[in-house]
C-alpha cells in the first residue's frame, strides 16, 4: 500500500480527458509516475549503498579517474593509493531534524600496472572529483629516431 498523490488537472491531462473515457489515460500517467518514482534514485547514486559513479580514462601520459561526488567539502574527500588500488572516500555531515546525519561513501578501483604512485593529483570542480595518475616512463610510447647513414 503506498500513498498516491492527487494530481490536479494540468495542460497535459485536460485535452486528453476531453476525449476517450479517461480511465486509460489515467492509467498511463499512473504508470509514468510509478516508473519515475522507481528510477528517481538510480541515476544519482543514492540507492547504491554508499557508492557513487566513477569513470576511468587514459591518454598517452596519464590515467584519469572521474567521480561524481556532488556536495562535499574538499577536506572531506580522501584519495589514497594502496597496493595498486585507488580508494576514494567522502564523508558528509548533514543537519537533519533528528540530530546530524553522517554519510560515508567510498569506492576502490584497481589501477592498471603502468601507473606510477607518485605525482598523483586530484581536483574537485562542480561536484566532480578528477584524479590524475601519471603513467610510468616505460609505459609511455617512445619515439626513437635512428639516423640512417
Amino acid at each position: 500500500m503506498s500513498y498516491i498523490r492527487y494530481n490536479y488537472p494540468t495542460r497535459r491531462s485536460l485535452p486528453v480527458a476531453a476525449f476517450g473515457r479517461g480511465a486509460w489515460n489515467g492509467l498511463e500517467s499512473e504508470i509514468d509516475r510509478l516508473f519515475n518514482a522507481a528510477l528517481a534514485g538510480v541515476e544519482a547514486g543514492t540507492n547504491t549503498g554508499g557508492r557513487f559513479p566513477v569513470d576511468a580514462y587514459q591518454d598517452t601520459h596519464n590515467v584519469y579517474v572521474r567521480a561524481e561526488l556532488p556536495g562535499f567539502k574538499r577536506d572531506a574527500i580522501k584519495v589514497e593509493v594502496v597496493d595498486g588500488y585507488l580508494t576514494l572516500e567522502a564523508t558528509r555531515e548533514s543537519e537533519a531534524e533528528k540530530g546530524s546525519h553522517h554519510a560515508k561513501f567510498n569506492r576502490s578501483i584497481s589501477l592498471p600496472e603502468d601507473v606510477q604512485t607518485d605525482g598523483i593529483t586530484a581536483a574537485y570542480v562542480d561536484g566532480v572529483l578528477t584524479v590524475t595518475l601519471p603513467k610510468k616512463e616505460e609505459a609511455k610510447p617512445r619515439k626513437i629516431s635512428v639516423a640512417v647513414s
Binding site: N7, Y8, T10, E43, P53, V54, D55, A56, Y57, Q58, D59, T60, V63, Y64, R66, E68, P112, D126, V128
Partner: peptide
C-alpha cells in the same frame, strides 16, 4: 559542462553524458 578531450580513451564508464532535466508541477 565537461566533455571528454579527444585524446582520452575510455577504460571504464559508469556515468552518463545525458543532460539533467527535472520538471516539477
Amino acid at each position: 559542462a565537461w566533455s571528454r578531450p579527444k585524446d582520452w580513451s575510455v577504460i571504464y564508464r559508469e556515468t552518463t553524458d545525458a543532460n539533467f532535466l527535472l520538471e516539477l508541477d
